[in-house]
Amino acid sequence: MKDESQPALPVNSQNGNHPETIPSVAVSARALPDNLAVKCPNCRELLVGKDWEKNNHVCPRCGHHFRLSAEQRIELLLDEGTFEELAADLIPTDPLEFVSRSQSYRAKLEDEQAKSGLKESVVAGTGKIEGLPLALAIMDFRFIGGSMGSVAGEKITRAIEKGLEDHIPVLIVSASGGARMQEGLLSLMQMAKISAALARLSEAGVPYISLLTDPTTGGVMASFASLGDVILAEPGALIGFSGPRVVEQFMHQRLPKDTNTSEFVLAHGMIDAIVHRRMLRATLAKLLRLYHNAGRSAVIG
């Protein structure tokens, strides 16, 4: 039987497929004995689980950035204990009564919920970085490839509205193959909904920082992920509108190795910086400080 657990766009980063290591990243690390050792999908090095975790899930040998769960991302970025979840009660439905060739959408949602412990692909909330408040939404690739349906769209929009209401900066961490097929046009329209909310945020003079992580493609990349006042990316992430395989099929040619990576979009002027995971929190704190102090006169105080 074919499965539908794949992201909305074929994802195949330049680092090759991410084999058996992915589940062990995904599931809460501490509990699992098989986290004693993890194989880096990029350089094939066998890593000691504890060292790898301490290294923020980055391969100490080649610098490969493993995907993080939303929970791990919160732990990495926010001041301890400051996260408060928003819209935690939202759950997906099956608005199209999607007729699948394999598993029904409802059954798939239940499966994914059980597997990931998440209700959907986005976790939204508020928190602080070095004492400075922000509203944030974090996509979790484990949940149907981080795909964006109605719930993801709504949670991200609510995070933006929270930023607007409290006049605090908004951070969105993307990790998504794009729009979710099983909710049809409702998914596509989330791009418009979120972008409209961001337009209001922008008009109100509230900063929005977009962080792109592996992978950020499709409708997510072609909407809010590309609309940040500042756009950052983790190294080596797959980033682009189309997946490289789609581009190759369309062009009938092999593409250069770094096509649609963080490095590629930086070189083409689409983002501001590539930030190593160990520097992420400090970089975000710096940006928050700079925005926070904007408009203050240095002389008068």
Binding site: M191, A192, S195, A196, L198, A199, S202, E203, M221, A222, S223, F224, A225, S226, L227, G240, F241, S242, V246, V247, F250, M251, L255, T259, N260, F264, H268, G269, M270
Partner: peptide, 25 residues
């Protein structure tokens, strides 16, 4: 939208996103 290499290089994502941000206002 066109899924070509040049479209990626010239920012097809950014171009779509910008329309989505401007049109509501």
């Amino acid at each position: 939208a066109s899924p070509g290499l040049e479209d990626e290089q010239r920012g097809i994502s950014q171009a779509i996103a910008e329309n989505l941000e401007v049109m509501p206002r």
